[in-house]
Amino acid sequence: MNLFRLFGDLSHLASIFILLQKIQSTRSCRGISFKTQALYATVFITRYLDLFYEWVSLYNFTMKVFFIASSCYILYLMKYKYRPTHDPSIDTFRVEYLLGPCVVLALLFHYKFSIPELLWSFSIFLEAVAILPQLFMLQRTGEAETITTHYLAALGAYRALYIPNWIYRYFTEDMVDPIAVTAGLVQTALYLDFFYVYFTKVLQGQKFELPA
């Protein structure tokens, strides 16, 4: 464990609490893509199957349980408790265009040809693009509530912090995970546009609005 990864994980945790806070305080999931949240739940469930047979650390175990539980809880909130506030007509990204290529990539790039390893690879590729329905929705509506942008910023910061973590691990542990690194770089790159608007507008106290 190094500080980059620790702060990355904490930022990931924070993003989930911000999202829950947004839903509870506005009593609405307006502006949140159900598809992205469903993809994240899929990512956590397919990646953390090793919860049942591999012990890494108490930290690792607790975080995995938390990520699976919180993502399922968010799906419940969106699908049942706050269902009327979710508008599927603007959440129109075709997730099959993401799922299909991720299955193919996992079949091509994996460390071992076994069910858990294929699912692990699949989850890594899927996580890289899971934010796309959310960003697509943002692009369509052209604006976002400030708290929603804080959620996205925390999520993007988590990915960005994993990059120095990998560089650090390369030098200190002689370890490189090419699949995670490639997917992670792509994932972080997807946030660049968002970060630009976040830093130049939201953090200056303005509303998140995309130029027409």
Binding site: R5, D9, H12, D50, E54, V56, S57, N60, M63, K64, F67, Y111, W120, Y162, N165, E173, D174, M175, V176, D177, P178, I179, A180
Partner: peptide, 10 residues
């Protein structure tokens, strides 16, 4: 030689 990646990240 590089160590084999272990799935110890989240």
């Amino acid at each position: 030689p590089l160590a084999e990646p272990k799935h110890d990240e989240l």
